[in-house]
Every structure is written in structure tokens, then in C-alpha cells.
């Protein structure tokens, strides 16, 4: 897949690499990036050669958040709300049954954090700076962050990150549970690839079943979640035998 302006997309060894590619603005997320990211994620979802997706950023940053120069261009709140659900890019992330890894470096701010939170695994290089500046700009996160953040790091830490607008580094992010692993900058690519490769060698149906059980089960009462787990496990066994 080619012809993208704001991202790059490539597949190698069952791993799809989606790189945010507006390095001159530290990969600030804009409307064009949304549309191209949507297409790339469709490819991750639909391409049978792909077992796992990796999100990363070109240049000095993962993503510094939304491109604010484009904000305020929506004609009305009514239209903005229609647009939000017409092309539901964040729902697209959540609809992908394959695992997603966020490989984070440099700056990871605002919707950059939110993109990472829509992935299953977050690996950061030790030079990463994290932060959620939305409230200090008169907004709230709108890429799922108000929901994914407390579900990932807990309510109190999430409120602190959203309301007390301090930036912090990778080791603190690790302590908060915002990322699962921190490596030296020079080792980020290799660590990300090694992690992705482990998934490629696993039974694909089983990996998907575990991802579905964890994400969907989190929204269910325990009894229903255990039923879901049973259904997914049985289906996975049946397809393995065939």
C-alpha cells in the first residue's frame, strides 16, 4: 500500500508497521492523517498476511497530539458530532482483533497517548515525555482517553494526569502502568520487533480469542465474562483441530 502523505505502511514477516509521518510537526494528528490511518488500519484488519500491527512515529516523536491549527474549522457542533461517528477512527482501532503494539519515543502527548492506549502493548524508549494537556487548552481528550486511561492506570492516577498537567518521563510512565516496558532509545526498534515476532509464531486464533476475552470481558459482569471466555476457548479449540 502506498500513496500516503501523512503515514507510511509496510508489511514484513507478518508484522504490519504503521508509522505516523509528519515529522516536521512531530507527527501532530490531523484530518488527513485520520483518513490515511483509517485505511491503514483496515489493511491491518483485513490482510491475511498480517498477524500483528505496530504503531510508531517517524522522526523525533511518536505523536504530540492533535494538530491544533486545524481546530475550530468544523461548521457546528451538530456537524462535528456527525463527523465523529461517520469515520470512527478510534472505533476502528478497537475493532481490530489482532494485537497492536505502540512503539513510543520522543514526545507522546494528548492524542498520542490516546492512540497508544488503544493498542494492547506499549513499549517506550527511555527518552519519552508523556502528558495530557487537553484541559489546559479548554478541551477534554476526545480519542477515548477519558475512558482508556482510567481503565489502564486507575481512576486516581488518570485524574492526576488529566487535571494536573505535569509532563513526565518513561520511568514514571512505567511506574504508573501507562507503558509495560521501557528500553534504551537505540534498542526500541529491536525490542518492538522481537515482541511482535513472538506473536507471529503463536496460534493466531488463540491470540485473537485472548484479546477479545480481555477487552470485551472487562465490560461484562464476571458471570457473563466467564461465559464469553468459555465460548472463545471452545471456538479456538474447534478451529485448531480442523
Amino acid at each position: 500500500m502506498g500513496g500516503f502523505q501523512t503515514i507510511t505502511y509496510s508489511v514484513a514477516g507478518g508484522i504490519a508497521y504503521v508509522a505516523l509521518n509528519r515529522p516536521h510537526v512531530l507527527n501532530a494528528y490531523n484530518v488527513e492523517m485520520r483518513d490515511e490511518l483509517y485505511q491503514a488500519l483496515e489493511a491491518v484488519r483485513d490482510d491475511n498476511e498480517v498477524s500483528i500491527g505496530v504503531l510508531r512515529g517517524e522522526g523525533r516523536a511518536f505523536c504530540v497530539g492533535a494538530d491544533l491549527t486545524e481546530f475550530g474549522t468544523a461548521p457546528s457542533q451538530i456537524v462535528a458530532r456527525d463527523v465523529r461517528w461517520e469515520r470512527d477512527i478510534w472505533g476502528m482501532f478497537l475493532s481490530i482483533s489482532k494485537p497492536l503494539i505502540a512503539s513510543i519515543h520522543g514526545y507522546c502527548l494528548g492524542s498520542g497517548v490516546e492512540i497508544a492506549l488503544l493498542c494492547d502493548i506499549r513499549i517506550a524508549s527511555d527518552d519519552t515525555v508523556f502528558g495530557m494537556p487537553e484541559v489546559s487548552l479548554g478541551m477534554i481528550p476526545a480519542a477515548g482517553g477519558t475512558q482508556t486511561l482510567p481503565r489502564t492506570i486507575g481512576i486516581s492516577r488518570a485524574l492526576e494526569m488529566l487535571l494536573v498537567r505535569n509532563r513526565f518521563g518513561a520511568s514514571e510512565a512505567l511506574g504508573l502502568g501507562l507503558v509495560t516496558r521501557v528500553v534504551e532509545r537505540g534498542g526500541l526498534v529491536a525490542e518492538t520487533e522481537a515482541t511482535a515476532r513472538r506473536f507471529v509464531s503463536m496460534n493466531r486464533g488463540a491470540v485473537r480469542a485472548v484479546k477479545a476475552a480481555v477487552w470485551q470481558g472487562a465490560d461484562l459482569p464476571l458471570d457473563s465474562a466467564l461465559d464469553l471466555e468459555t465460548r472463545l476457548a471452545l471456538r479456538s479449540m474447534a478451529t485448531r483441530e480442523n
Binding site: 458530532r81 472505533g91 479548554g138 486511561l149 482510567p150 477487552w215
Partner: peptide, 30 residues
């Protein structure tokens, strides 16, 4: 120092959203 209304809404989406399914929470946030 944050915007007052945004502060209230951020708190509301987090606290109320945690009692909802993810999908409902995303609706509230949007």
C-alpha cells in the same frame, strides 16, 4: 489553571465513564 468547564467535564467523563461500558463511555466523551 485548567479551563473550568473542561475540568468538570474531564472529571465527569472519567468518574461516570468508569461505571459504563467502554462503548458508552466513548459516547459520553464524544
Amino acid at each position: 489553571s485548567g479551563a473550568p468547564i473542561a475540568t468538570r467535564y474531564a472529571r465527569e467523563t472519567v468518574l461516570k465513564g468508569m461505571d459504563m461500558t467502554l462503548e458508552q463511555g466513548l459516547r459520553l466523551e464524544a
